[in-house]
Write a protein that binds this DNA or RNA. Structure first.
Lengths: 135, 135
DNA sequence: TATCTTCGCTATCCATTAGATACATATATA
DNA sequence: TATATATGTATCTAATGGATAGCGAAGATA
């Protein structure tokens, strides 16, 4: 563990480089694949648990619930329960969530746009590794 | 684990909602607190390992090295070694990395800007939990 | 009557990852 | 001899992520 020495403060008095800063914990919360995808998925409107599960390929019920609970706790998602049988629960972005969704879907778009570049870089790195072994 | 059914394709032929899509693995790589912070830290110019370590409060040498290796492998960071004693190594963003840094620092700024909102939401959630116990 | 289905979870276990700590290397300095 | 510098690696443990199974309640089906 190193000491720290961060000179560039943000204009808001918060500094994500400091681990005790609230903004650092926000960044930590956002740094999750499923947070990205859930927020992007809800961008077009409210969805039910099952609809989200079908949209997010590979998510387990546990991770979906866990991610939605975190987003609800942090005020990015609103949860509405309809007391019917079988149960019906709907999720939608709050205003704060919508605000964030714009940025996150830019990251998603960037990922899709630059996926080939990064695939190439990875291939070059793997080839380089192989070369190291031969040499 | 659920089945999937994603209708909204991106215009690039890639779809981050599909776990086999290369863009999904890119999103996965980006979904890391230290990736965010390292890329943001390098935005202003090249830095040495020790300079990064001091800037990123709480990072361990292992995580710093690991994060830099991933970023180098994916073509976002360039590593330059000067063969002197003691060793001197400098890191800087590639063009692709610079491109991404713009988006990531928007997320960082958002985190700092909205940290109070999220702090409040968390406090309300915690209070609600407490109320549940009392009731 | 007895299972089967649906939906939105919860519980449990195991694999993977993150994080803490100590050490390696080579040289200059005290 | 001991310390400091700079950039890491090695090892161990704690935390997180992911796979699988099951619950509960009403209605449909056999």
């Amino acid at each position: 563990m190193y000491l720290m020495d961060s000179e560039d403060k943000s204009p808001f008095g918060y500094d994500a480089f400091r681990r005790t800063c609230p903004s650092h914990t926000v960044l930590e919360m956002l740094a999750s694949k499923w947070v990205y995808l859930v927020v992007c998925a809800l961008r077009r409107g409210r969805l039910r648990n099952g609809e989200l599960a079908r949209k997010l390929e590979g998510i387990t019920p546990k991770m979906l619930t866990q991610t939605l609970r975190v987003l609800e706790r942090d005020g990015l998602v609103r949860r509405e329960i309809f007391p019917v049988i079988p149960p019906r629960v709907e999720y939608e972005l709050t205003e704060l969530g919508q605000n964030l969704a714009g940025l996150l879907s830019q990251i998603r778009t960037w990922s899709e746009q630059h996926a080939p570049d990064i695939k190439d870089a990875r291939a070059r790195a793997a080839a380089g590794q192989e070369g190291d072994l031969v040499a």
